[in-house]
Design a protein around this nucleic acid. Structure first.
Length: 257
DNA sequence: ATGACATTTGCAAAATGA
C-alpha cells in the first residue's frame, strides 16, 4: 500500500499536474495540503473521475487539507486539532481508510520569527503532539503525513547559514518535532535513507530548483504498528521539474499489507 | 533586502507562503 503526502500549493492551479501524478504513480492514500480552496470549490468531481474518494477541510485563499483514497471513501474522524476553539485555520484532517488512521497535516510556517506567527506555530505543535499521544495510546496503525514546516536536522537543508534565522529550523521548532518522534513516531524517510540530502521542497525563487537548493519538510510519521510494515519510502522528485509544478514534491511510503 | 516567485482574491495590489 502506497501512501503519499503532497503540498500542491493550490489545488485548482495544480489539478492537471495532480491528476497526472495520480495516474502515473497510483498511490492508495494521498494527503494533500495547501488546497487554497473553500469546501465548496474543492474539485470533487475531477478527483472522483481520477478514481479517488476524498474528504477535505478547505479554506478560502490559503491553507486547506484533504485525504484521498483510491477506489474507496475515507471516513472522516476529525477536522481541526483539539485544544483551541479559536483556531480558524484549516490545517488538520483525520480519517480512517484501508484499516489505517491517516492525518493530513499542514503545520504553520511560523515566519517571521520571533513574533506572533512563530508563537502560533509552537502552540500548534504542542496541540499536535498532545493529540498524537492520544492516537499512539490506541495502538493502531497511524500515519501522520504532511507539510510539517520543520527542517529536523542540519542534514535536511541545502544550507544551514541560509536558513539559520528561519522559523523552519529554530531550536524550538526542532525540539517540538523531536518530542513527537520521542513519543514513538518513526520518521519514515530517514528510516529508509538515513544519511544524505532528501529534499521535498525547492523555493520558486532564486533558482532553487536548478541549483537543487532544497530542504526536507514533508514528513510521514508512523506509529509503531505502521512502522513495522514499512518497506520503502521516497520522493517523486521529477514532478518538481515539470510544467506548472508545486514548490513541493510528492513524498511517499510503502506499507506491507 | 521594501527584493526574487507563485497563487488567490478580485480586477489593483495586497496577503500568504518558506
Amino acid at each position: 500500500m502506497r501512501i503519499a503526502t503532497y503540498n500542491v500549493n493550490g489545488i485548482k492551479a495544480r489539478l492537471p499536474r495532480l491528476v497526472e501524478w495520480l495516474g502515473e504513480t497510483a498511490p492508495d492514500i494521498v494527503c494533500l495540503q495547501e488546497l487554497k480552496s473553500s469546501d465548496e470549490t474543492f474539485p470533487e468531481a475531477d478527483i472522483r473521475a481520477a478514481g479517488y474518494g476524498a474528504v477535505w477541510h478547505g479554506q478560502k485563499g490559503f491553507n486547506g487539507v484533504a485525504i484521498l483514497a483510491k477506489g474507496a471513501d475515507p471516513v472522516e474522524i476529525r477536522r481541526g486539532l483539539p485544544g483551541d476553539p479559536d483556531d480558524s485555520h484549516s490545517r488538520y484532517i483525520e480519517a480512517r481508510v484501508n484499516g489505517l488512521v491517516v492525518a493530513s497535516i499542514y503545520l504553520p510556517n511560523g515566519n517571521p520569527q520571533p513574533g506572533p506567527k512563530f508563537d502560533y506555530k509552537l502552540a500548534w505543535m504542542a496541540r499536535l503532539n498532545a493529540h498524537a499521544a492520544t492516537l499512539l495510546a490506541q495502538e493502531v496503525p497511524v500515519v501522520l503525513a504532511g507539510d510539517y514546516n520543520v527542517i529536523p536536522t542540519d542534514a535536511d537543508t541545502f544550507s544551514v547559514p541560509a536558513m539559520a534565522e528561519d522559523a523552519l529550523m529554530q531550536p524550538e521548532s526542532r525540539a517540538a518535532f523531536r518530542a513527537l518522534a520521542f513519543q514513538g513516531w518513526t520518521d519514515a524517510i530517514r528510516t529508509r535513507q538515513p544519511t544524505g540530502p532528501v529534499w521535498t521542497f525547492w523555493d520558486y525563487q532564486a533558482g532553487a530548483w536548478p541549483r537543487d537548493a532544497g530542504f526536507r519538510i514533508d514528513h510521514l510519521m508512523l506509529s509503531p504498528d505502521a512502522a513495522d510494515r514499512l518497506t520503502d519510502a521516497g520522493v517523486d522528485k521529477a514532478y518538481r521539474g515539470r510544467e506548472k509544478a508545486s514548490d513541493h514534491a510528492p513524498t511517499w511510503i510503502v506499507l506491507r499489507d
